[in-house]
Amino acid sequence: MRSHFPAAALLLAKPPARQDKQPVPRVPSSSPARPGGSFCKGWTLLVLVFLYAPIAVLVAGSFNASRFGNAWEGFTLRWYGELARNQPLLDAAWNSLVIAAVTTVLSVALGTLAAWLLHRHRFPGASWLALAAASSLVTPEIIMGVSLLVLFAAFAVPLGFTTVIIAHTTFCFPFVMVAVQARLAGMDASLEEAALDLGATPAQAFRLVIAPCLMPAIVSGALMAFTLSLDELVVTYFTAGPDAQTLPVKILGLARVGLNPVLNAVSTVFIVTIAALVVLGEMLKRWRAVSP
Protein backbone atom coordinates (compact mmCIF):
# COMPACT_ATOMS: atom_id res chain seq x y z
CA MET A 1 0.00 0.00 0.00
CA ARG A 2 3.00 2.11 0.26
CA SER A 3 3.72 3.52 -3.12
CA HIS A 4 6.77 2.48 -5.03
CA PHE A 5 8.05 5.95 -4.21
CA PRO A 6 9.79 5.11 -0.95
CA ALA A 7 11.85 2.61 -2.81
CA ALA A 8 12.83 5.34 -5.23
CA ALA A 9 13.87 7.34 -2.17
CA LEU A 10 16.06 4.45 -1.10
CA LEU A 11 17.74 4.44 -4.47
CA LEU A 12 18.40 8.16 -4.19
CA ALA A 13 19.74 7.64 -0.70
CA LYS A 14 22.02 4.87 -1.84
CA PRO A 15 23.30 5.58 -5.33
CA PRO A 16 24.81 2.62 -7.19
CA ALA A 17 27.96 1.44 -5.45
CA ARG A 18 31.03 3.32 -6.52
CA GLN A 19 34.28 1.45 -6.52
CA ASP A 20 36.44 4.45 -5.79
CA LYS A 21 34.69 5.35 -2.58
CA GLN A 22 37.15 6.79 -0.09
CA PRO A 23 36.42 6.54 3.62
CA VAL A 24 35.05 9.89 4.76
CA PRO A 25 37.22 11.37 7.50
CA ARG A 26 35.17 11.52 10.66
CA VAL A 27 35.24 14.29 13.16
CA PRO A 28 35.95 12.77 16.57
CA SER A 29 32.88 12.79 18.79
CA SER A 30 34.55 15.20 21.21
CA SER A 31 35.09 17.74 18.45
CA PRO A 32 33.67 21.21 19.07
CA ALA A 33 32.34 21.24 15.48
CA ARG A 34 29.22 19.35 16.53
CA PRO A 35 26.63 22.05 16.90
CA GLY A 36 23.30 21.11 18.42
CA GLY A 37 24.19 17.47 19.01
CA SER A 38 21.85 16.90 21.92
CA PHE A 39 19.03 18.84 20.27
CA CYS A 40 19.30 16.62 17.20
CA LYS A 41 19.26 13.50 19.33
CA GLY A 42 16.18 14.61 21.25
CA TRP A 43 14.44 15.60 18.03
CA THR A 44 15.28 12.25 16.43
CA LEU A 45 13.79 10.41 19.39
CA LEU A 46 10.62 12.55 19.14
CA VAL A 47 10.34 11.82 15.43
CA LEU A 48 10.72 8.11 16.09
CA VAL A 49 7.91 8.28 18.66
CA PHE A 50 5.79 10.07 16.04
CA LEU A 51 6.62 7.33 13.51
CA TYR A 52 6.06 4.37 15.80
CA ALA A 53 3.14 5.46 18.01
CA PRO A 54 0.42 4.80 15.41
CA ILE A 55 1.89 1.39 14.64
CA ALA A 56 1.91 0.56 18.35
CA VAL A 57 -1.72 1.70 18.63
CA LEU A 58 -2.62 -0.50 15.70
CA VAL A 59 -0.90 -3.61 17.04
CA ALA A 60 -2.33 -3.04 20.53
CA GLY A 61 -5.79 -2.58 19.02
CA SER A 62 -5.57 -5.94 17.29
CA PHE A 63 -5.29 -7.65 20.71
CA ASN A 64 -7.80 -5.40 22.48
CA ALA A 65 -11.11 -6.99 23.45
CA SER A 66 -12.86 -3.62 23.03
CA ARG A 67 -14.54 -3.29 19.66
CA PHE A 68 -13.96 0.44 19.42
CA GLY A 69 -10.49 0.51 20.85
CA ASN A 70 -11.10 3.47 23.18
CA ALA A 71 -9.92 1.70 26.30
CA TRP A 72 -8.08 -1.48 27.06
CA GLU A 73 -10.65 -4.16 27.90
CA GLY A 74 -8.38 -7.17 28.06
CA PHE A 75 -6.33 -9.35 25.75
CA THR A 76 -8.05 -11.31 23.00
CA LEU A 77 -7.21 -13.21 19.84
CA ARG A 78 -10.81 -12.89 18.70
CA TRP A 79 -10.04 -10.51 15.80
CA TYR A 80 -7.44 -12.89 14.43
CA GLY A 81 -10.04 -15.66 14.64
CA GLU A 82 -12.51 -13.49 12.72
CA LEU A 83 -9.80 -12.70 10.19
CA ALA A 84 -9.17 -16.42 9.65
CA ARG A 85 -12.87 -16.86 8.82
CA ASN A 86 -13.17 -13.74 6.67
CA GLN A 87 -13.20 -15.27 3.20
CA PRO A 88 -13.13 -12.03 1.14
CA LEU A 89 -10.00 -10.84 2.97
CA LEU A 90 -8.31 -14.22 2.61
CA ASP A 91 -9.16 -14.27 -1.10
CA ALA A 92 -7.68 -10.80 -1.47
CA ALA A 93 -4.53 -11.89 0.35
CA TRP A 94 -4.21 -14.88 -1.98
CA ASN A 95 -4.67 -12.59 -5.01
CA SER A 96 -1.92 -10.35 -3.67
CA LEU A 97 0.47 -13.27 -3.29
CA VAL A 98 -0.22 -14.65 -6.77
CA ILE A 99 0.19 -11.22 -8.37
CA ALA A 100 3.38 -10.50 -6.42
CA ALA A 101 4.89 -13.87 -7.38
CA VAL A 102 4.21 -13.51 -11.12
CA THR A 103 5.31 -9.86 -11.05
CA THR A 104 8.59 -10.87 -9.39
CA VAL A 105 9.36 -13.51 -12.03
CA LEU A 106 8.60 -11.12 -14.90
CA SER A 107 10.51 -8.25 -13.29
CA VAL A 108 13.59 -10.38 -12.71
CA ALA A 109 13.59 -11.60 -16.32
CA LEU A 110 13.01 -8.16 -17.82
CA GLY A 111 15.21 -6.23 -15.38
CA THR A 112 18.21 -8.55 -15.52
CA LEU A 113 18.10 -8.80 -19.31
CA ALA A 114 17.81 -5.03 -19.64
CA ALA A 115 20.69 -4.34 -17.25
CA TRP A 116 22.94 -6.88 -18.95
CA LEU A 117 22.22 -5.69 -22.49
CA LEU A 118 22.68 -2.05 -21.59
CA HIS A 119 25.91 -2.92 -19.81
CA ARG A 120 27.41 -5.07 -22.53
CA HIS A 121 26.30 -3.43 -25.77
CA ARG A 122 26.48 0.08 -27.07
CA PHE A 123 22.93 0.84 -28.22
CA PRO A 124 22.15 4.07 -29.98
CA GLY A 125 19.83 6.00 -27.68
CA ALA A 126 20.60 3.79 -24.68
CA SER A 127 20.37 6.74 -22.32
CA TRP A 128 16.82 7.44 -23.52
CA LEU A 129 15.97 3.87 -22.77
CA ALA A 130 17.40 4.13 -19.28
CA LEU A 131 15.51 7.39 -18.83
CA ALA A 132 12.21 5.75 -19.83
CA ALA A 133 12.81 2.96 -17.31
CA ALA A 134 13.76 5.47 -14.62
CA SER A 135 10.71 7.60 -15.35
CA SER A 136 8.45 4.66 -14.65
CA LEU A 137 10.16 4.47 -11.25
CA VAL A 138 9.13 7.96 -10.28
CA THR A 139 5.92 8.76 -12.16
CA PRO A 140 3.26 9.64 -9.59
CA GLU A 141 1.33 6.44 -9.12
CA ILE A 142 -2.04 8.04 -9.76
CA ILE A 143 -0.82 9.07 -13.23
CA MET A 144 0.51 5.58 -13.88
CA GLY A 145 -2.77 4.12 -12.67
CA VAL A 146 -5.08 6.23 -14.83
CA SER A 147 -2.85 6.11 -17.91
CA LEU A 148 -2.74 2.30 -17.80
CA LEU A 149 -6.50 2.25 -17.22
CA VAL A 150 -6.97 4.39 -20.33
CA LEU A 151 -4.61 2.15 -22.30
CA PHE A 152 -6.46 -1.02 -21.32
CA ALA A 153 -9.79 0.63 -22.11
CA ALA A 154 -8.53 1.81 -25.50
CA PHE A 155 -7.68 -1.76 -26.47
CA ALA A 156 -10.75 -3.18 -24.69
CA VAL A 157 -8.63 -5.35 -22.40
CA PRO A 158 -10.81 -6.52 -19.49
CA LEU A 159 -9.36 -5.58 -16.10
CA GLY A 160 -8.14 -8.49 -14.02
CA PHE A 161 -5.02 -10.38 -12.98
CA THR A 162 -3.26 -9.79 -16.30
CA THR A 163 -3.69 -6.03 -16.18
CA VAL A 164 -2.56 -5.78 -12.54
CA ILE A 165 0.49 -7.93 -13.26
CA ILE A 166 1.39 -5.78 -16.27
CA ALA A 167 1.03 -2.63 -14.18
CA HIS A 168 3.09 -3.99 -11.29
CA THR A 169 5.83 -5.30 -13.55
CA THR A 170 6.06 -1.89 -15.19
CA PHE A 171 7.11 -0.19 -11.94
CA CYS A 172 8.91 -3.20 -10.39
CA PHE A 173 11.35 -4.24 -13.13
CA PRO A 174 13.34 -0.97 -13.03
CA PHE A 175 14.20 -1.77 -9.41
CA VAL A 176 15.68 -5.13 -10.43
CA MET A 177 17.42 -3.40 -13.32
CA VAL A 178 19.01 -0.79 -11.07
CA ALA A 179 20.13 -3.40 -8.53
CA VAL A 180 21.72 -5.53 -11.27
CA GLN A 181 23.30 -2.48 -12.95
CA ALA A 182 24.97 -1.54 -9.67
CA ARG A 183 26.40 -5.03 -9.37
CA LEU A 184 27.54 -5.08 -13.01
CA ALA A 185 29.31 -1.75 -12.57
CA GLY A 186 31.48 -3.31 -9.88
CA MET A 187 32.17 -6.51 -11.79
CA ASP A 188 35.47 -7.31 -13.47
CA ALA A 189 34.83 -7.30 -17.23
CA SER A 190 37.74 -9.68 -17.82
CA LEU A 191 35.69 -12.48 -16.23
CA GLU A 192 33.50 -12.67 -19.30
CA GLU A 193 36.44 -12.21 -21.65
CA ALA A 194 38.24 -15.10 -19.96
CA ALA A 195 35.19 -17.32 -20.37
CA LEU A 196 34.95 -16.41 -24.05
CA ASP A 197 38.69 -16.96 -24.59
CA LEU A 198 38.36 -20.40 -23.03
CA GLY A 199 35.76 -21.28 -25.64
CA ALA A 200 32.42 -20.55 -23.99
CA THR A 201 29.63 -19.19 -26.18
CA PRO A 202 28.22 -15.81 -25.06
CA ALA A 203 25.11 -17.61 -23.77
CA GLN A 204 27.24 -20.07 -21.79
CA ALA A 205 29.39 -17.27 -20.44
CA PHE A 206 26.26 -15.49 -19.24
CA ARG A 207 24.73 -18.59 -17.68
CA LEU A 208 27.88 -20.05 -16.08
CA VAL A 209 29.90 -16.95 -15.19
CA ILE A 210 27.86 -13.76 -15.21
CA ALA A 211 24.56 -14.96 -13.76
CA PRO A 212 26.14 -16.51 -10.63
CA CYS A 213 28.03 -13.24 -10.04
CA LEU A 214 24.81 -11.27 -10.33
CA MET A 215 22.82 -13.59 -8.09
CA PRO A 216 22.92 -11.48 -4.90
CA ALA A 217 21.69 -8.42 -6.83
CA ILE A 218 19.01 -10.47 -8.56
CA VAL A 219 17.79 -11.88 -5.26
CA SER A 220 17.63 -8.51 -3.52
CA GLY A 221 15.95 -6.97 -6.60
CA ALA A 222 13.43 -9.82 -6.60
CA LEU A 223 12.71 -9.29 -2.93
CA MET A 224 12.13 -5.61 -3.54
CA ALA A 225 9.82 -6.31 -6.47
CA PHE A 226 7.85 -8.81 -4.38
CA THR A 227 7.47 -6.38 -1.45
CA LEU A 228 6.52 -3.47 -3.71
CA SER A 229 3.92 -5.49 -5.57
CA LEU A 230 2.44 -6.92 -2.38
CA ASP A 231 2.10 -3.46 -0.92
CA GLU A 232 0.94 -1.33 -3.85
CA LEU A 233 -2.40 0.43 -3.62
CA VAL A 234 -3.00 3.21 -6.11
CA VAL A 235 -1.95 1.64 -9.42
CA THR A 236 -3.72 -1.58 -8.42
CA TYR A 237 -6.84 0.37 -7.49
CA PHE A 238 -7.19 1.61 -11.07
CA THR A 239 -6.17 -1.56 -12.90
CA ALA A 240 -7.62 -4.41 -10.83
CA GLY A 241 -11.29 -4.58 -11.73
CA PRO A 242 -13.59 -6.55 -9.42
CA ASP A 243 -11.92 -9.96 -9.83
CA ALA A 244 -8.33 -9.20 -8.95
CA GLN A 245 -8.78 -7.12 -5.79
CA THR A 246 -5.59 -7.23 -3.76
CA LEU A 247 -5.33 -6.96 0.01
CA PRO A 248 -4.47 -3.22 0.01
CA VAL A 249 -7.43 -2.41 -2.26
CA LYS A 250 -9.71 -4.46 -0.01
CA ILE A 251 -8.37 -2.78 3.13
CA LEU A 252 -8.99 0.67 1.63
CA GLY A 253 -12.57 -0.34 0.88
CA LEU A 254 -13.13 -1.56 4.43
CA ALA A 255 -11.37 1.40 6.04
CA ARG A 256 -13.63 3.77 4.11
CA VAL A 257 -16.70 2.12 5.59
CA GLY A 258 -15.46 2.44 9.15
CA LEU A 259 -13.24 1.12 11.86
CA ASN A 260 -13.18 -2.58 12.40
CA PRO A 261 -10.84 -4.48 14.73
CA VAL A 262 -10.36 -7.16 12.07
CA LEU A 263 -8.59 -4.44 10.07
CA ASN A 264 -6.17 -3.99 12.97
CA ALA A 265 -5.49 -7.72 12.90
CA VAL A 266 -4.96 -7.89 9.13
CA SER A 267 -2.76 -4.78 9.30
CA THR A 268 -0.62 -6.33 12.03
CA VAL A 269 -0.15 -9.49 9.97
CA PHE A 270 0.72 -7.32 6.98
CA ILE A 271 3.26 -5.21 8.88
CA VAL A 272 4.92 -8.31 10.32
CA THR A 273 5.13 -9.91 6.85
CA ILE A 274 6.64 -6.83 5.21
CA ALA A 275 9.03 -6.26 8.14
CA ALA A 276 10.17 -9.89 7.86
CA LEU A 277 10.84 -9.42 4.13
CA VAL A 278 12.80 -6.21 4.80
CA VAL A 279 14.88 -7.82 7.53
CA LEU A 280 15.52 -10.76 5.20
CA GLY A 281 16.70 -8.29 2.55
CA GLU A 282 19.04 -6.58 5.04
CA MET A 283 20.47 -9.95 6.05
CA LEU A 284 21.04 -10.78 2.40
CA LYS A 285 22.90 -7.51 1.96
CA ARG A 286 25.17 -8.32 4.90
CA TRP A 287 25.73 -11.80 3.54
CA ARG A 288 26.64 -10.26 0.21
CA ALA A 289 29.01 -7.88 1.94
CA VAL A 290 30.95 -10.68 3.64
CA SER A 291 30.93 -13.16 0.77
CA PRO A 292 33.56 -12.42 -1.90
Partner: peptide
Protein backbone atom coordinates in the same frame (compact mmCIF):
# COMPACT_ATOMS: atom_id res chain seq x y z
CA UNK B 1 14.65 2.35 12.81
CA UNK B 2 13.60 5.13 10.44
CA UNK B 3 13.10 2.70 7.57
CA UNK B 4 10.92 0.10 9.24
CA UNK B 5 7.76 2.22 9.52
CA UNK B 6 8.49 3.50 6.02
CA UNK B 7 8.16 -0.05 4.76
CA UNK B 8 4.97 -0.67 6.71
CA UNK B 9 2.14 0.22 4.37
CA UNK B 10 1.06 3.82 4.42
CA UNK B 11 -2.59 2.84 4.24
CA UNK B 12 -2.30 0.72 7.36
CA UNK B 13 -0.50 3.54 9.16
CA UNK B 14 -3.02 6.14 8.00
CA UNK B 15 -5.71 3.87 9.28
CA UNK B 16 -4.03 3.92 12.71
CA UNK B 17 -4.36 7.72 12.77
CA UNK B 18 -8.14 7.39 12.59
CA UNK B 19 -8.05 5.52 15.91
CA UNK B 20 -5.93 8.26 17.39
CA UNK B 21 -7.78 11.29 16.03
CA UNK B 22 -11.46 10.33 16.10
CA UNK B 23 -13.67 12.22 18.57
CA UNK B 24 -13.73 9.38 21.11
CA UNK B 25 -10.18 8.44 20.15
CA UNK B 26 -6.92 8.26 22.06
Amino acid sequence: LVMIPFWASFLVRTFAWITILKSEGL
